[in-house]
Design a protein around this nucleic acid. Sequence first.
DNA 1: CAAATATTCCAACGATTATTAGAATATTGC
DNA 2: GCAATATTCTAATAATCGTTGGAATATTTG
Lengths: 220, 220
Amino acid sequence: MDKRKTKDLLYEEVARIGKAVSSPKRLELLEILAQGEKTVEALAVDAGIDIKLASAHLKVLKAARLVVAERDGRFIAYRLSGEDVSALWVNLRTVAEEHLVELKVAMDGIFSAPEKLDAETRRSLMSKARRGDVVVIDVRPTAEYENGHLPFARSMPLDEIRQRLKELPIDKDIVAYCRGPFCMMSAEAVALLKEHGLRAYKIADGTPEWQAAGLPLSAS
Amino acid sequence: MDKRKTKDLLYEEVARIGKAVSSPKRLELLEILAQGEKTVEALAVDAGIDIKLASAHLKVLKAARLVVAERDGRFIAYRLSGEDVSALWVNLRTVAEEHLVELKVAMDGIFSAPEKLDAETRRSLMSKARRGDVVVIDVRPTAEYENGHLPFARSMPLDEIRQRLKELPIDKDIVAYCRGPFCMMSAEAVALLKEHGLRAYKIADGTPEWQAAGLPLSAS
DNA sequence: CAAATATTCCAACGATTATTAGAATATTGC
DNA sequence: GCAATATTCTAATAATCGTTGGAATATTTG
């Protein structure tokens, strides 16, 4: 047995995972899938690409076993093949944020304040939410909320906020979150709420980050 | 500001990290660098590739900021740009081991027994080593041991074992480790020790895995 | 300054990949 | 069984990537 050949084989296998995460579109698909399972069309719409292209990228992800497909009637639903895949996405993005100056600059330009959370802040947010000192709102689509959300968070999808303003307290801090640091829904929600005189803030965490930090999600 | 364009830019940046880890050779270079800094030539030799090719791959890794280069006299030493890069390598390999059947099969074929460690096993190994109930040996080259090693581990490079057999106890378990699950040095060490009637075992962990599990390394 | 050494740069090739359009497949509802 | 729908497969093109050989650069040593 040739030592070099077997080694080559092992690294080649890991590189299959690397190749799968080497395309921006595929990374975006992974992030969307980290919010729960979706059909090909839903994924294509969310990622802003053609269905055929989405299908092709999903095929690559499937070949690398990062996602699994299941037919549901006329549709085919894709989902991540495990929590570790969601954690891998978070890990890749975190390394990029940490080391790539260009990404730091871009994010500073887009998202005004740095709302990164550490372990302590996450714990304190959860206990404040439990006591009712702050209202945590999940501004993602309902299906994603139902698939898993931060404990004590209330569902309030971005496109419903305007009609449901009266449900929110005027005298408490409101903390909005969405899919993660790259998602702009929470920022839009905060802008909207502030316009109406509410005390709103956003956090960078989405459910993948929360979970990768070892914290529990709530289902339903 | 076009929402789609800015998103594309963000994922594109993360994909730079993904592209960097999409090549088997680059992954192998990362694993070697996770053992400590090395010159281009040392890396090329360890990875079994031409120096020019190693240099080209290192250039890609440097562009993605996963490694940094520093000139030291006539040589240029490369090292990982942070602990998180080492953790990313472990994460990628773990996802591959978890999901790719081909890799599981290949590893079962090469490494007879499954020596994966969980948190509990790691803790108990450390306390047994502290008490002296087992002897933990680091069979990597001395420089790598000095860069960081498991607590209570003793350095015994693979190519010195034969001459230093009498240093090892005949009546205790000997646990060997090397660079990680893909490294074959510990397996060779164990085979050698068993030939001489010693009670030797190996573990899959290397320093990157140990560190990624949140456990401390010793320096010197 | 010249020779030796370590590494990078440049150019070129064959192989792989992303993307798009058009045809094909599988399922549902009539 | 037939029309409608969702998705995949096939083919084709342009762009990118891995690898190799030869020239160029930077540093140390004499």
